[in-house]
């Protein structure tokens, strides 16, 4: 059951602390960071390394609502709020027992 379910992409924000997953993509309709500079959250997430096939790990999540969370990607750690993390779709590879 779990193996089948883990094949479906879920938002990174849904993962509990200690979970590892593989990025399957970043949503297109992400918030705009700066109108004048024409930058969006999605663009920046891709630049930071959240691209398909890359492994990520949720190493910490703040109480009470798991917001923000600290995510490790390609050897770097970033703090993301749930809202940014929900734009990153992942498939699970390792669930902590």
């Amino acid at each position: 059951m779990r193996a089948a379910a883990s094949m479906l992409p879920v938002p990174l924000s849904a993962l509990p602390r200690g979970t590892r997953a593989v990025v399957s993509g970043v949503l297109d309709d992400t918030p705009v960071i700066d109108d004048a500079l024409r930058s969006t959250v999605g663009q920046r997430l891709i630049e930071l390394g959240f691209v398909s096939g890359v492994e990520v790990e949720v190493i910490e999540a703040m109480w009470p609502l798991g917001d923000p969370l600290a995510v490790r990607v390609r050897g770097s750690t970033f703090a993301l709020r749930r809202r940014e993390a929900s734009a990153i779709l992942v498939t699970l590879t390792h669930v902590p027992s």
């Binding site: 918030p31 960071i33 930071l48 600290a70 750690t77 970033f78 703090a79 993301l80 709020r81 809202r83």
Partner: peptide
């Protein structure tokens, strides 16, 4: 208006 955190933890 919303602004993301996207903060690197070096």
């Amino acid at each position: 208006s919303y602004h993301p955190l996207l903060l690197e933890l070096p």
